[in-house]
Amino acid sequence: MPNMPRFNFHRPGTMEEALDLVSRFRASVKVMCGGTDLVPKMRAGVAVAENVVSLTRVPGLSTISYRDDDGLVIGGTARISDVARHPDVRRHYPALAYACDKMATVQIRNMGTVAGNLANAAPSADTAAPLLAYGASLVLVERGGRRQVPLEDFFTGPGLTVAEPMEIIEAIRVPAPPLRSGSAYLRVSARSKVDIAAVGVAAALNLDLEGRVIGVRIALAAVGPTPLRARQAEDMLMEQIPDHDLLARAGAACVRTAKPIDDVRASANFRRAMVQTLAQRVLARCGRLARGEDAQ
């Protein structure tokens, strides 16, 4: 294994210090949380930085909190395993809980963070699709400034985001789920466990008293350069009763949105078929949850 290239490692004890460091070294700096993406990439020479700023000692940054009026706030260094086991996440955000339960391995989940997963911007990132479906946004801070970016505007390509090198993800904000809503995430890959998704589909659905769709977001993972919103399918569902036929057509619309490629993990053809299957399953489960039916 090639040895790790040399770099300066900083472990600031406050957010101010962290922001100073990333600003000072903006020409060659990487923020690090769990390091589960960054370290292998640096070893492989894919990521290069003279300075690495670890956020793990910044106090208060790992908090996860939920309020009915304000929704969920996931701190920038909150670990995947902590998110997975948080009772409010499990209760209100089953798609996110599922992603955090199933992704990677125990060891990686205990180190890796949701912010790192998003900032790393892999098209297959497991927390991205559920968070897109929930309409999440990111709070980005830099020295002297703070902005909130909707997650759907965050990704610009594989490994690319709108965040500047001196910006830090302080938190991920997720709106509280409306009444009569349901959400779900499913993924497939060749290895049944411990694997990067070959395809993932997440959705959040919200019904009126008659069972008509009044709000829906569908997000697709690993079938395009970034996680994608399936707007055509969403439009098709709005104001409709989501019966089996409609879900099948919505699944087909998701397939039209997907831009899968052939790669070492799966063929484009297989990925398209999986988008259809997973979208139907995910939407059906969302419907059952929203109607308060027992969804296994």
Partner: peptide
Amino acid sequence: FVMEQGRTLNTSFLDYKMPAAED
């Protein structure tokens, strides 16, 4: 092994799908 013109494309356990303990 995913191979193209004699070149192996999946050269890590991320993409060489060996079953894990959980499987």
